[in-house]
Design a protein around this nucleic acid. Structure first.
Length: 454
DNA sequence: TGAAAAATGAGCAAAGGA
DNA sequence: TCCTTTGCTCATTTTTCA
């Protein structure tokens, strides 16, 4: 009796959680409920989401808020088709299978080595050609970004929702002095890209010549690791200084290993005899391609957090450069999860005029930073929205009518639940913040269909 | 082919400071 | 009191190396 009750309660709370997640993804509650009834409470969220779409495509959702989720006839067929095709290709279990179709059952998405994307500046040799799937071709152009090293299956799911486009994985260490392994899914042409000038320094010493003075010969680093959202404490600097001071020169291998491990983990640089320190905010701004003092005026910790979450501007600008010739009169941009405006800075540095930017960003500090930069550098219109969930399909249609459509939908959705350094809630694409990816998809699709009606 | 090393947009509670 | 900083958490995946 007790066991049964516990099982029952577990199932109920599991069901509540799944419904909440699906609602967070932008599905109506009753359709989420139906999908769970069809597929079972243990089905993975991706399966449930597919099921809702398949059901909508089949036209059997005679209830619920149709207007928000209405899809054109062609698109319905496409979504259902894609759903079937994928199920076959991935050899996944049919809906209703009690075993969840989680990442472990997805087709692997191998990361390229070296991680150079489709091509790099001044490297025509390695350039590849690609054919976009028919349903991926714009308008609008869109550009999506997230961490490359996500849990298994995440990129397969993201790619499946974003019209089966193959991700472009790029490590920004090929364009600047710091690593940044990211995946980009976009429907932009990849021929005739050009980089921002001047080309950024690609080594630590080129970026910060004065560090050469104290750099020991046994520290082989020439580039930095990924710039993250938090910095090491002063105590670590002290511990390293003590360890080095109480050993010879050069220090024994064991001390070298301890120091190098910490230096790599925290991106420490040599600023004095036996003295390492973390980077300063203006150095991170520089490495990421932002103008000096872009994030100035907020607390140091806030600056590191916002910068750690942002684009590497040179990398993104290289991909966006193809827009310059296409839009000599400027672009209308829908910017989701804008952060401190890496995409906007990239367009500006490319010399692409932004007539309008509709920006969605939850962080008040980030909105303030973007507004400050915009008012100083731009002549176009900036509309700031806080919550992606409040950007309904109706509002999107209104914006599309008002501005004559969006030329670019750009954004990187939250990586909190995907990032390797998250020890607490690395729950994948279904995690609380990372599930906002589904809003990115919803909004791109809403822009697509609103523009199709123009 | 396997084990070990390295890398990674993080998050929490508690201490510290204005 | 509220906000910022610090120490600790020890996961997952890919790459390197024997």
């Amino acid at each position: 009796g007790d066991l049964l009750d516990i099982d029952f309660l577990r199932e109920m709370s599991e069901k509540d959680n799944k419904i909440k997640s699906l609602v967070d993804m932008g599905f109506p509650e009753d359709e989420a409920n139906m999908a769970i009834t069809r597929c079972g409470v243990d089905a993975a969220l991706t399966v449930l989401a597919d099921s809702v779409y398949a059901s909508q495509a089949a036209g059997d959702c005679h209830y619920g808020n149709l207007s928000d989720y209405e899809l054109g006839g062609r698109k319905r067929a496409r979504l259902m088709e894609g759903s079937k095709k994928k199920r076959k290709r991935y050899g996944g279990a049919a809906q209703g299978n009690r075993r969840p179709l989680d990442g472990s059952h997805e087709e692997p998405m191998p990361l390229p080595n070296p991680m150079v994307g489709f091509n790099l500046p001044n490297d025509r040799l390695r350039s590849v050609t690609r054919r976009l799937p028919q349903q991926a071709i714009g308008p609008p152009f869109f550009y999506y970004e997230n961490v490359a090293l996500a849990p298994k299956g995440v990129w397969a799911t993201i790619s499946r929702f974003l019209y089966d486009i193959e991700p472009e994985f790029v490590d920004s260490k090929h364009l600047c002095a710091a690593a940044r392994k990211r995946g980009y899914i976009h429907n932009l042409p990849i021929e005739n890209r050009f980089p921002l000038l001047p080309l950024p320094p690609k080594t630590i010493f080129e970026a910060f010549p004065h560090y050469k003075k104290w750099w020991p010969s046994w520290d082989p680093r020439r580039q930095l690791n990924c710039l993250q959202t938090s910095m090491s404490s002063a105590k670590l600097t002290e511990r390293i200084q003590c360890a080095l001071a109480s050993s010879g020169n050069p220090p024994p291998k064991s001390v070298q290993k301890y120091v190098m491990d910490e230096c790599r983990k925290w991106n420490l640089v040599w600023v004095g005899k036996n003295k390492v320190a973390h980077l300063e905010p203006d150095e991170v701004e520089y490495l990421l391609g932002f103008p000096r003092d872009h994030t100035r005026g907020v607390g140091k910790t806030e600056r590191f957090k916002s910068l750690g979450n942002s684009f590497q501007v040179d990398t993104v600008a290289y991909h966006l450069s193809v827009l310059k010739d296409m839009y000599p009169n400027g672009v209308n941009v829908l910017s989701l999860f804008t952060g401190i405006g890496g995409g906007e800075v990239a367009l500006h540095r490319l010399g692409i005029h932004m007539r309008t930017v509709v920006s969605v960003e939850i962080g008040e500090v980030n909105r303030r930073i973007l507004r400050g930069w915009w008012d100083q550098t731009q002549t176009g219109t900036l509309i700031e929205i806080a919550d992606v969930k409040s950007l309904t399909d109706d509002r999107i249609a209104t914006f599309v009518r008002r501005f004559g459509g969006f030329d670019l939908v750009i954004g990187g959705s939250p990586c909190n639940n995907l990032a390797g350094s998250n020890r607490h809630h690395r729950d994948g694409l279904e995690g609380e913040q990372s599930a906002l990816f589904y809003h990115y998809f919803r909004i791109v699709d809403a822009v697509k269909s609103a523009m199709g009606r123009m």
